[in-house]
């Protein structure tokens, strides 16, 4: 009975969404707003990567919100695990094989470097703060897998998280007091296109996001690793 009702509901939603999708012209010329972004993004934001100019330029406020969503999720996970189970050690875990632990020694700094490259060049090449942060967190995941005794410096991670979040908000507020008087306005000089030091506040924000996302996801890995036994 429940399965039937569920299937019928699913069918109704499926048909409804299907009908609506038919009304949306795929492959047709871009929308007015899309055209505007493609035409004006370089000039408005100074970023060569148009995706970045939308994410950290036109819709930077959404990005601030999304960073906060991730912050809330990581924090909530920490709070729930702390109250529900309490912290447990990882003593019973078998040590990893030689290949993994030796490979980790070489790879860990390279992965960190790659992550930092991704978020510092977000305004020039594909990638950005979220992607770079995820790469950085993967380096920490590798450490957890290869050497069970090691843990991240929790207080350092939460300090990075808070400070980089504050940098984002502070840049937004500086936009309100400097120059154009809009929150998150690009008040720094935009520089020459296609150079590392260009696009005003965008690389600064992306560095903050990269560090924040990296430390947050590393914290999530840390929290979940403790719960695996």
């Amino acid at each position: 009975m429940r399965a039937t009702v569920g299937l019928i509901l699913l069918a109704v939603i499926g048909v409804g969404v299907g009908i609506s999708l038919l009304a949306i012209p795929f492959g047709a010329p871009k929308t007015e707003i899309g055209d505007y972004y493609i035409e004006n993004a370089r000039e408005d934001t100074g970023a060569t990567n148009v995706v970045t100019s939308v994410v950290v330029g036109y819709r930077a406020f959404d990005t601030l919100g999304e960073v906060t969503v991730l912050f809330v999720a990581a924090l909530g996970l920490g709070a729930v695990l702390a109250t529900a189970g309490g912290k447990r050690g990882r003593s019973g875990v078998e040590p990893a094989s030689l290949i993994l632990s030796a490979g980790n020694i070489f790879l860990f700094p390279l992965i960190l470097l790659f992550g930092a490259y991704i978020f510092t060049h977000g305004h020039l090449t594909p990638g950005g703060g979220f992607q770079g942060g995820a790469v950085i967190a993967s380096a920490f995941l590798l450490v957890y897998l290869s050497s069970p005794g090691k843990r991240i410096n929790e207080s350092g991670a939460s300090l990075t998280e808070s400070v980089s979040g504050l940098v984002f908000v502070a840049i937004g507020l500086l936009g309100l007091t400097h120059g154009t008087h809009y929150f998150l306005a690009n008040f720094l000089p935009k520089g020459a296109l296609n150079t590392l030091f260009s696009a005003g506040i965008i690389p600064v924000i992306y560095c903050a996001i990269g560090l924040k996302v990296g430390s947050e996801l590393a914290g999530v890995v840390d929290n979940l690793m403790e719960e695996t036994e």
Binding site: D62, G65, E66, V69, V72, G76, A79, T83, A84
Partner: peptide, 22 residues
């Protein structure tokens, strides 16, 4: 879309706080 983002902040923090007592 901004509505969705703030709605998520509201909801996810509520999920975690409901479980606060543990």
């Amino acid at each position: 879309f901004n509505l969705f983002v703030f709605f998520e902040i509201l909801c996810i923090s509520s999920y975690a706080l409901v479980a606060y007592v543990g």
